[in-house]
Computed example of a mutant assay.
Amino acid sequence: MTSPPRILSIAGSDSSGGAGIQADIKTITMLGGYAMTAITAITAQNSRGVTAVEVLSPAMVAAQVDACVADMGVDAVKIGMLGSPAIADAVAERLADLAVPVIFDPVMVSTAGSVLADAATVAAFERLMAIATLTTPNVDELAALGGDAALAARGIAYLAKGGDAPGDTVEDRLVLPGGEGQAWTAPRIATRHTHGTGCTLSSAIATFLGQGVPLSEAIEDARDFVRAALLAAPGFGEGHGPMGHHAVR
């Protein structure tokens, strides 16, 4: 293991700093990793939603990945917003032969409700889920991917996130090929400052795996980090505000 672990985030840019590449960099840095990025899209967004998106070319995304891997090396990868089927395919090609943990957060809709992946992009997720060490869908994303039965039938390891489900208790379920798994529950934190929770969780898992932590422990530690960041939210924004990555020690 390299110290600090080199974590590559492949995701979109969030101009407000609450989610996407910006949340990943904060998370990776706060957890002791070295953050590298391959930006897939540039978004104009804030706590109230996304107002504009410009998707980069697949060649540019691939070039960023190649530049990082060839010179800096990589110990783990986090994948977030991709922006197009062609980018999903380009990323899958680059990662197919990388023998490092890959965490895939299949971003389809932002916390504020903006659609960030069309049907064709969702269909292209198949290659990435097959490569990934772990896929981390929320409630709606899991349904769009076919649900528990469909992912289990395809042998996909995934963490079903329960933050979007109703109720006072949040349950996250790890399901591994063969039906083995584990569940974590915790009281829901009552806050509107939830922007970037999925990005933060997936990049935290990737960072812990890059440090050599076993998968189950990495998930548990990442959940603790997200909950601490929720409690430390600075209160910015009029909608779904950002968390307090900076305040977590």
Rank of each mutant, 00 (worst) to 15 (best):
134 L>W: 15
134 L>E: 12
134 L>D: 09
134 L>V: 09
135 T>I: 10
137 P>K: 11
138 N>R: 14
139 V>N: 05
141 E>M: 07
141 E>I: 03
142 L>Y: 09
142 L>G: 07
143 A>E: 14
144 A>W: 04
144 A>T: 05
144 A>G: 08
145 L>D: 05
146 G>Y: 13
147 G>C: 04
148 D>G: 01
148 D>Y: 12
149 A>T: 05
149 A>P: 00
149 A>N: 01
150 A>T: 08
151 L>G: 07
151 L>M: 05
151 L>H: 09
152 A>K: 04
153 A>N: 01
154 R>E: 05
154 R>T: 02
154 R>F: 07
154 R>Y: 07
155 G>C: 05
155 G>Q: 03
156 I>Q: 01
156 I>K: 00
157 A>D: 00
158 Y>R: 04
159 L>W: 07
159 L>K: 04
160 A>D: 06
161 K>M: 04
162 G>P: 01
162 G>L: 02
162 G>E: 01
163 G>R: 01
164 D>A: 15
165 A>L: 04
165 A>Q: 06
165 A>E: 05
166 P>W: 08
167 G>Q: 01
168 D>S: 11
168 D>L: 00
169 T>Q: 07
170 V>I: 15
170 V>Q: 01
170 V>M: 06
171 E>M: 12
171 E>Q: 13
171 E>T: 15
172 D>H: 10
172 D>E: 02
172 D>Y: 07
174 L>I: 06
175 V>P: 00
175 V>Y: 08
176 L>D: 02
177 P>A: 02
177 P>W: 07
177 P>C: 04
178 G>F: 12
178 G>V: 10
179 G>H: 09
180 E>C: 02
180 E>I: 00
181 G>R: 09
182 Q>W: 11
182 Q>L: 13
182 Q>M: 14
183 A>C: 13
183 A>V: 14
184 W>I: 03
184 W>Q: 03
185 T>S: 15
185 T>H: 10
186 A>E: 09
187 P>H: 10
187 P>Q: 06
187 P>D: 08
187 P>I: 06
189 I>M: 02
189 I>G: 08
189 I>K: 06
191 T>Y: 12
191 T>C: 11
191 T>E: 09
192 R>T: 14
193 H>F: 15
195 H>I: 01
195 H>T: 02
195 H>M: 05
196 G>T: 11
196 G>Y: 13
196 G>M: 10
196 G>P: 06
196 G>I: 09
196 G>D: 04
197 T>P: 06
197 T>A: 14
197 T>W: 10
198 G>W: 01
199 C>M: 08
199 C>T: 07
201 L>A: 13
201 L>Q: 09
201 L>S: 13
202 S>T: 09
204 A>I: 04
204 A>N: 04
205 I>W: 07
205 I>T: 03
205 I>V: 15
205 I>S: 03
206 A>N: 02
206 A>P: 08
206 A>H: 10
206 A>K: 07
207 T>P: 04
207 T>Y: 13
207 T>L: 11
208 F>G: 00
208 F>E: 12
209 L>K: 10
209 L>Q: 06
209 L>H: 13
